[in-house]
Design a protein around this nucleic acid. Structure first.
Length: 115
DNA sequence: TGCTTGACCGACG
DNA sequence: ACGTCGGCCAAGC
């Protein structure tokens, strides 16, 4: 049976994943969605973040786009706040971008990869 | 019900 | 490096 997840359910799963991103690391919208069980639906992450109540105090600034950049206009308050926070955590921006090789979050309990 | 909008993404030219 | 396009799918109107 096709028991669809309620929007609360989807958001809760995504929020839980975002909560797991450690200080000084970042994850993409797509990565978060996949980790929450929604492969190829990065927009769900964006939506969950938009809907997220402040009380959750999510590390929203650790979620960035697949280009390694913040998804805000560079002159916006959101951009400035996010960038300040990340830099305070030790994340370095090079020409406005974050290097995934160094800062991408690699969750442990992912599917075991045996080659 | 249908159409538009998004804190997105990957492939292409 | 950069714009465009199609895919994706919940929300809002």
């Amino acid at each position: 049976m096709t028991a669809k997840l309620s929007s609360e359910q989807r958001h809760a799963r995504i929020w839980a994943v975002i909560q797991r991103i450690p200080r000084g690391r970042v994850a993409t919208y797509g990565q978060v969605a996949a980790e929450a069980g929604f492969v190829k639906q990065p927009r769900l992450t964006a939506q969950a973040l938009r809907q997220a109540p402040d009380e959750l105090k999510l590390p929203w600034y650790r979620v960035i786009n697949a280009q390694g950049k913040l998804s805000f206009a560079p002159d916006s308050e959101a951009y400035k706040r996010a960038r300040r926070q990340l830099e305070a955590e030790g994340v370095v921006f090079t020409r406005g971008k974050i290097d995934f090789d160094i800062y991408r979050w690699r969750p442990r309990s992912a599917a075991p990869v045996l080659d």
